[in-house]
Amino acid sequence: MACEHAKTKAPSSQQRVQVRVESLFDGVDFSEPLLWSEFEEFNEDLFDKVIALVESAMVQAKLGKNKKAIDEVVLVRV
Rank of each mutant, 00 (worst) to 15 (best):
V73I: 06
D45K: 12
V78I: 11
I51G: 06
D26Y: 07
G27D: 02
L75C: 08
T8G: 11
S23N: 06
L63G: 00
D45P: 12
T8K: 12
S31L: 10
R20F: 09
E41T: 15
K67R: 14
R16W: 09
L35K: 04
K65N: 09
F30E: 03
V59P: 01
S12I: 09
P33S: 00
V54R: 02
M1C: 13
V73G: 01
A69E: 15
R16K: 08
S37K: 03
V54G: 02
E22S: 14
K49R: 14
W36I: 03
L24M: 04
V21A: 05
D71R: 12
R77M: 07
S56V: 00
E41R: 12
D48M: 13
A10H: 05
S12F: 11
E44V: 09
I70F: 01
V74E: 15
P33L: 01
D29F: 04
N43E: 05
V50S: 01
D29S: 14
E72L: 15
A52N: 11
E41Q: 13
E44K: 12
V28F: 02
D45F: 15
V28C: 01
G27T: 03
E44S: 15
K65C: 06
L53V: 05
P11F: 15
F47E: 09
K7P: 10
D26I: 04
Q60P: 01
S12Y: 12
